[in-house]
């Protein structure tokens, strides 16, 4: 299936906050109450439509344990979007956001769009972090914010798609150089990119792009 762009996403956040469940809900539209634990990295992919353009999301779902941070750091490279997830029922996962954000900012392109996600919104009775606190954190650090539930699927679609919209907006504003794959964006095979910023010479041979890529 052809697509106009491919965006690389990375999902980060403490272990057990529901990163893999969010991904599964987004790609397979299902919820697994007891999900396997992620060691290293897992992958998901899905096509979305933004402004009539097909966009393929290539999603890297990382391990959350502190010990694996040095591994996760190497996966930020070339990500256009990041979903930074915490669990609204466990305050410590919210407290660790600052250090996640530091990592993300330090190891990614400065244009990377970060979506802050307070997951498990279905567990209202066990809520430990107020919605307003998430909003305030996002405002303070220039992030987009949403509360989601991987279980009920509430806002899951929106979280992934709004991130894509924001990346797409940045492309149109010319903030992203779509020809530099270090930005986490690839132009799809056989696509004409007349609508986007930048010259339209690059697409004659998508194989060239692949072999030039310094990331994925």
């Amino acid at each position: 299936m052809t697509y106009a762009y491919l965006f690389k996403y990375i999902i980060i956040g403490d272990t057990g906050v529901g990163k893999s469940c969010l991904l599964l809900q987004f790609t397979d539209k299902r919820f697994q109450p007891v999900h396997d634990l992620t060691i290293g990295v897992e992958f998901g992919a899905r096509m979305v439509n933004i402004d009539g353009k097909q966009i393929k999301l290539q999603i890297w779902d990382t391990a959350g344990q502190e010990s694996f941070r040095s591994i996760t750091r190497s996966y930020y490279r070339g990500a256009a979007g990041a979903l930074l997830v915490y669990d609204i029922t466990r305050r410590e996962t919210f407290n660790h956001l600052t250090s996640w954000l530091e990592d993300a900012r330090q190891h990614s392109s400065s244009n990377m769009v970060i979506m802050l996600i307070g997951n498990k919104s279905d567990l209202e009775s066990r809520r430990d972090v107020k919605r307003e606190e998430g909003e305030a954190f996002a405002r303070e650090h220039g992030l987009i914010f949403m509360e989601t539930s991987a279980k009920t699927a509430c806002n899951v679609e929106e979280a992934f798609i709004n991130t894509a919209k924001e990346i797409y907006r940045k492309i149109q504003q010319g903030l992203f150089d779509v020809h530099n794959e270090a930005n986490g964006i690839k132009i799809g095979p056989q696509q004409c990119i007349s609508t986007s910023a930048g010259p339209s010479t690059a697409q004659r041979n998508s194989g060239d792009i692949e072999s030039n890529s310094g990331c994925c």
């Binding site: 060691i39 290293g40 990295v41 591994i71 190497s74 692949e210 072999s211 890529s213 990331c215 994925c216």
Partner: peptide, 20 residues
Amino acid sequence: KNNLTPDIYLIDWIFTLYSK
């Protein structure tokens, strides 16, 4: 060519000795 580095698949295999 596709930037498929070994860490992508080996980390899980080695950490859990393939049991997962």
